[in-house]
Computed example of a mutant assay.
Amino acid sequence: MKSVRKQATGDFAENLPSFFLLVQGSLCNLAKFLQLCVSICPEHYTDKEILLLLLLLFKLSLEKELKQYPLVDFQHLIMKLLENIRNWDTEMPNLCLAISYLSSHHHDLLWLVQFVPNWTSRGRQARRHLSLIVISKLLKNRVNVPSSQDQQMALLCKNLVEMKPSNLLKRISKSEKHQDGLSKESLIYEFEPQAYYLTYVLLHLVREASNSEAVYSNQRKWLLKLCGALEKYVKGDIKEDARLFYRTKVKDLVARTYSNWQQMIHSSQPTQIFIPPHPQGAVMAQMP
């Protein structure tokens, strides 16, 4: 058995250089070439063709071997393709919905969300929209993401309430076929790690969906509601146990998420309102 394992390991190690050359010499160069094409002749590519190419790139990014390499050229191409979509308001939701169907596993879905480049305004918008779709999908809710930011934040608050680990544990245990006759302790031992891992992924998606370039005063109320829901429904549902490290890991992410939202609240900017200049402003400025 040892010789077989060594041989398998050796074969994999021998194949690594060739696969690395394939990624660097072929796929990355192809991505650079396509980026050049869409930059020089953007009018030659329809929105439908751009969406199909984007879906291909996201599907390729899920390949297990490719995840070992930084696919920066892929992301540069994705960023350029997003910028070239003409009918953005219509095609962006369709693209995000199509991306969410590329996998059914929550780990892969989080990967797809974080593979969207967030270096541009369109990239950040698509990343937030895709996060909301994936959250609804993982919670088995109807996927219907509203267009306005206020409605999106309201949806996020509603979804956060459903992310209690105990609720997810009940849902996962009910979905399993061979659970008849198991005691409560056995159910917890069997399915609780899955529930907490799903909570962990969902919290990362919530962080992505709540990110914003600038937080104005009208968004503060939503961040405050998110903080309250996070404390009450997620943190309050976690009972730490030194033997169950996955609980501590989720609680740590809750603390980091809460701290991040508090920083966003404190750095929020007042809503910009135009105030016409006072005709006697110069005189009033000199008054004590």
Rank of each mutant, 00 (worst) to 15 (best):
K80T: 12
L95W: 12
L110H: 07
E91Q: 14
Q114H: 14
R127M: 08
F115C: 07
Q75Y: 12
W88P: 07
V116N: 02
L95F: 15
F115W: 12
R127G: 06
Q114E: 14
E91G: 01
K67Q: 15
L71H: 03
E65P: 12
H76V: 06
I99R: 01
K64W: 13
P117V: 05
Y101C: 06
E65Q: 12
I78T: 11
I99L: 05
V134C: 03
Q68F: 15
H129I: 05
T90S: 12
I85G: 00
L109V: 08
L112K: 03
L110E: 03
K80V: 09
C96G: 05
V113E: 04
W119S: 12
L109W: 09
Q68I: 11
N94P: 06
I135Q: 01
V134P: 11
S104P: 12
R124W: 07
V116C: 06
W88E: 00
V116D: 00
H129D: 00
L81Y: 03
I78S: 03
Y101L: 10
S104E: 15
K80Q: 15
F74L: 04
K67D: 02
H107Y: 10
I78R: 03
Q68A: 10
V134I: 15
Y69E: 00
E91C: 10
H76P: 06
L81K: 01
I135N: 00
P70N: 10
W88H: 04
F74V: 03
L71V: 05
H129S: 00
Q75A: 04
Q68W: 13
Q75S: 12
Q125F: 11
W119I: 04
N118S: 13
S100F: 14
P93G: 04
L71N: 02
L77T: 01
L130D: 02
L102T: 03
D108P: 11
